[in-house]
Nucleic acid binder design. Structure first.
Lengths: 362, 362
DNA sequence: CCCGCCTCTTGAATCGGTTCAAAATTTGCC
DNA sequence: GGCAAATTTTGAACCGATTCAAGAGGCGGG
């Protein structure tokens, strides 16, 4: 009798099987794997032998999870496709900072994302993580709403939403923009154009100030306002500054550039709201036969590494990208659970893409 | 009596609490959240109301996991720090392919990694994933060994190990190398140098053929052998071709270049075993005042996007990087569990970094 | 009005461990 | 040798859900 229990191999062997085989309680078997020092060497060896005989490779994380409650991984979520994390220069740099902090804290990273709304909701609500870092670039509010339901610690990257109950880290976007515009104004520029990151989803082309005001993404709006504040102080009518919205990629930036430089009085200064856009502009201007910075000055925003090696090197408003990532991770991993909203300092990095306008001497 | 059960809020509310509050069985409550169509609308609303009243946001994934057994995420593991996934161009491109396939398959990605051996073992054995994709660049064998203990589907990226029981996808490294060397030989080059990716951990500098033969990383060895095969066919003594090992970064590649070009008969053709190395070489040669391809030809290996926009654009042996990632994901997600080892085709992409040697006309 | 069928709901088993108070054993000391 | 203290081991509760066979209730047809 009981012969059919012998033919193991068909069912996975569990801790309880090992315990039984070794003639000890399940509790002891568990200790052998988790706190070996607490069990007598003699018994430990017996259990280990039984484990080996049964082909048991150690406790299944699935079981452990339920009891321990800790996944030891933090989720990084965005409303973009997962590939975004590896393609966008800013995201990549941010992820590098996050990755380093996670390495240090002994946590893994789970990339949570989805193309469509429904899948995103599902992925967020079922992700096995101890907390979330939210890339709020697109669809931030929705992302935050979904995440809240998880009752897990989370941090929004970007202080877009002004709700003080949302933990967030970010920069003062308006101040950064003022730095950029101020730099160009000081150099003597008077003909500006703004190349913007999205104000709302899936739209690009020239936008009015009114449309900027209604932006879904607060940080985009704030940057524009920062630019225009400074320009207004210099006596430049904000209404006269063309603003082109892009989707932060080449496809939507090039048409904006074409529109800008086909007019009779093209800008001498380009305020790009991301380094990615700025780098596309650099490339496009070169192909167009315009020299940067002699003919046109370009200031980026973000401070990604690619800006250091571009031709010419990019003048930009540098965010402390690595520090942002690090801080976000710490806020998740750190047990004290007070809501924090941190603003990190930005700085203007002057490199080779800015100079006085061509008519400065005239 | 039973008064203290009333003060909820201190313990998290579970499905069973909701069920009790709604006056239904736990099974029915579960159905409300997972197969709402199966429960009468009237009852469903009652349960939903109870859930809302108790602040229950839906089933906890931890519990679900244990029962369902499926995490819905695949782990991507490497022995490098996590940041590697976002910094190395080849890894990044590969991850893009993997990410797209995961998006399509509705799976998430968990990045598994660790600086030190012990942490890596722990991270691999406790990662909550349905399967592993292994970046075997460094420490491949150990990585495979650790992963095997998980009894989960896995795929090694790189066919480094010849053990047929290890599922793997990769390319024919020797064939790729032959393509590169053949191209340069056809152009008339006779003075070659090889800039290699690692043969063993943490080492760089000039290596002998004997050291190549003892390489821990089979794919590195195969590439060198591919190069030298072709050169030997052209009457070039393999022993005369300098081989410099690098750690696939700028710090270890530059010294190799300095050594190569400080001699009296510097090479006219550089065989770089990764695009990253090739791009560093391009940059270094420019700074050194040497023109590519007029003075020196460079062929890379991998086919990363950066090679398209470099100056000059890089001639390289292109791996089907995206396809490799996609295939790996499919092998994990696909239920039929036969061991597969797939070799994908490579091709030579001729761009601007190769030309006949300067003395070709002489 | 009864019966069978169909639709919902129930209850209990299960997933695979960890933990901790209490029991059992060993050790130390006089 | 006896007793208290220290060390190990046990056993059962618990983590939070899903699943499915079996039961209950409602409905239409004869």
């Amino acid at each position: 009798m009981a012969a059919q229990r012998i033919d193991r191999g068909e069912r996975t062997v569990r801790l309880v099987d090992v315990a039984r085989a070794a003639g000890v309680s399940q509790g002891t078997a568990s200790n052998v794997f988790n706190r070996p020092e607490v069990v007598r060497p003699e018994v430990r060896e017996k259990v280990e032998a039984a484990a080996k005989a049964l082909g048991y490779k150690g406790p299944d994380p699935k079981g452990r999870l339920l009891r321990a409650g800790k996944v030891n991984a933090i989720g990084v979520a965005t409303a973009e496709p997962i590939a975004y994390f590896f393609e966008d220069p800013f995201a990549r740099t941010l992820m590098t900072g996050i990755a380093e902090a996670c390495d240090r804290g002994g946590a893994g990273i789970s990339l949570v994302s989805a193309a469509n709304e429904e899948a995103l909701a599902w992925n967020i609500s079922t992700a096995l993580v101890d907390g979330f870092i939210l890339f709020c670039l697109q669809g931030g509010p929705r992302l935050i709403e979904l995440t809240r339901d998880r009752d897990l610690p989370f941090v929004a990257l970007e202080l877009g939403s002004r709700d003080p109950s949302i933990p967030a880290v970010g920069i003062d976007n308006a101040a950064g923009a003022r730095l950029a515009a101020g730099h160009l104004a000081d150099l003597g520029h008077r003909r500006f154009a703004i190349l913007s990151i999205p104000f709302v989803n899936r739209r690009s082309g020239r936008v009015s100030r009114e449309e900027v005001r209604r932006a879904a993404y607060a940080s985009s709006r704030e940057r524009v306002e920062g630019y225009l504040d400074v320009l207004a102080d210099c006596g430049i009518d904000p209404e006269s500054v063309p603003i082109f919205e892009t989707e932060n990629d080449e496809e939507t930036t090039v048409p904006a550039l074409e529109a800008l430089f086909s007019g009779d009085r093209p800008p001498t200064a380009l305020l790009a709201m991301s380094d990615r856009i700025a780098l596309v502009a650099l490339e496009w201007l070169r192909r167009r036969g315009l020299t940067v910075p002699q003919d046109v000055s370009v200031v980026g925003f973000d401070g990604v590494p690619e800006g250091e090696t571009s031709d010419p090197p990019l003048t930009t408003v540098a965010q402390p990208i690595a520090a942002l990532g690090r801080l976000a991770v710490e806020m998740i991993l750190d047990p004290r659970a007070e809501v924090r909203r941190e603003t990190l300092p930005i700085r203007l990095v002057r490199r080779g893409s800015t100079a006085p306008p061509p008519d400065a001497g005239a």
